[in-house]
Nucleic acid binder design. Structure first.
Lengths: 192, 192
DNA sequence: AAAGCACATTGATTCAAATCAATGCTTTTG
DNA sequence: CAAAAGCATTGATTTGAATCAATGTGCTTT
C-alpha cells in the first residue's frame, strides 16, 4: 500500500519517514473493479488518483456517443479531471477502470492544505504537472505534424506496456482513429 | 516595463514591493523585431519568455519543410521550448516574432534559484504550468473529438484577439489544416 | 511608382480515413 | 457447456481534407 506512490514522491522530492507519515494521513485508498467508474461526466471531480495497480482511462463521449480516450492511467500515473477538480465545475470526462485497480486518492481539501503547509508537496505537485504538460505537448505535436503511421510507431515505442494491456480499439480511440483504420495501419507496418 | 508581468504575478500570488524588486533583479528585457528568432531548432532553449507586448509563435518544421504551429504567445502569455529549457536538450521548436515585441526573460539559473529561495515564485510557476496544461488539454480534446468546423468555432470564441492579429494560414497551421481547407470552412460558416 | 511577395480564395483532382457491412475468433457469463 | 458479447480483421464504398493549380489583391520594398 502506498509503496509506488512514495517511491515516485521520493524520486522527485526526498521525504523523511515523518513527512511520509504525515502525507499518508491525508491520503486514502480505493479499490476499483474492472468497469467501475471513478468519475462520471457531470459529477464534480473530487479527487486526484494515483494508480498503484491496475489501469484506468479518462474519456469523453460526443453527441454521437462515440468515446474519445483522453488519457490512460497505468501504474505510477496520476489520473483525474483536473479542470473539474480545480474549479468545482462538472466533469466533462468519465474515468473508469480497465482492470481491477488500486488507487491512492487525495481530496481537494487535503491537496490544498498540503500545498499550503508543506513546500515539498508543492514541489512534487509542480514537477508532476510539468511532466504531464510535457507528455501532452509531445502527443499534440505528433498529432499535428506526423502521419498516422508514425504516430502509431511513436506510441508503441513510448508506451509498449499499454499496447500489451489495452484493447486495440481503445488505442485507436486515444489516437483519434477508428478501430478499422488502426487495424489496417498495423497490417501495413507488419508487412515491412 | 515589467508592468504586465507583475500584474499577472500579483493576480496569482500577491507580492510586496520588496519581493517585486527582488524578482526584477533576476529578469531581463528583450525586444524582438518582427520575424526575428527567439529560439531556433537545434539550439538549447535558455529562457522562458513572458510577452509584455507583441506576438510570437512556436512551431516545428517537418521533413517536408511544412511548418506546424504549436503555440501562439500574445501579451500576457509565456512562451518557450520548455522541454529543451528543462533538460538542456536541443530545441525541437522554433520561436519567432510575428510583430515587434517586448519580452521579459528569465534564465535557467535565475529560474532555479528563485524556485529554491522564494516559495511564492514556485507557487506562481505551478499555477502557470497548470493553466498551460489545462489550455492544452482543451485543445487536445477538441482535436480528438470535434469536427474541424466546431474546432474553428471554438478557436474564434476562445481567442478572438488572435484571429484579429494573426494571418489565417497560421491559424490553419495551428489547427493542423491547410490554408485552403480553413478558407473553405470559413466560407461554409459565413454562409449560415 | 513599379515590381515582387505574401496571402486568401476558388476550382479540379487525388488520397486517406470513415463508414457500412460481414466474418471468424476469443472471452464472458448465464 | 452453450449462447452471447466483445474484439480484430477484411472488403466495398463514401466522404472530407490534401494537393495541385490558377487568380486576384493588397503590402512591402526598392
Amino acid at each position: 500500500m502506498y509503496t509506488l506512490y512514495f517511491q515516485h514522491f521520493n524520486s522527485k522530492v526526498r521525504l523523511t519517514e515523518e513527512e511520509q507519515e504525515l502525507i499518508k494521513s491525508y491520503l486514502t485508498l480505493k479499490k476499483l473493479r474492472k468497469k467501475q467508474y471513478l468519475l462520471q461526466e457531470g459529477d464534480v471531480c473530487k479527487v486526484i488518483a494515483f494508480v498503484e495497480k491496475g489501469a484506468l482511462r479518462a474519456y469523453s463521449v460526443d453527441e454521437n456517443s462515440n468515446e474519445h480516450i483522453i488519457q490512460f492511467g497505468l501504474e505510477g500515473w496520476t489520473i483525474s479531471d483536473l479542470y473539474s477538480f480545480l474549479t468545482g465545475e462538472p466533469a466533462t470526462y468519465n474515468i473508469d477502470a480497465l482492470e481491477d485497480s488500486e488507487l491512492v486518492l487525495i481530496s481537494k481539501s487535503a491537496h490544498e492544505e498540503l500545498l499550503q503547509t508543506m513546500p515539498k508537496y508543492e514541489t512534487f505537485t509542480r514537477l508532476n504537472i510539468t511532466g504531464a504538460y510535457l507528455a501532452m505537448q509531445r502527443r499534440l505535436t505528433s498529432i499535428i505534424s506526423a502521419s498516422v503511421e508514425e504516430r502509431y510507431q511513436d506510441f508503441i515505442n513510448l508506451y509498449p506496456h499499454i499496447v500489451q494491456r489495452v484493447p486495440q480499439h481503445m488505442i485507436a480511440s486515444y489516437m483519434g482513429l477508428t478501430p478499422e483504420t488502426l487495424s489496417r495501419i498495423r497490417k501495413r507496418i507488419s508487412s515491412k
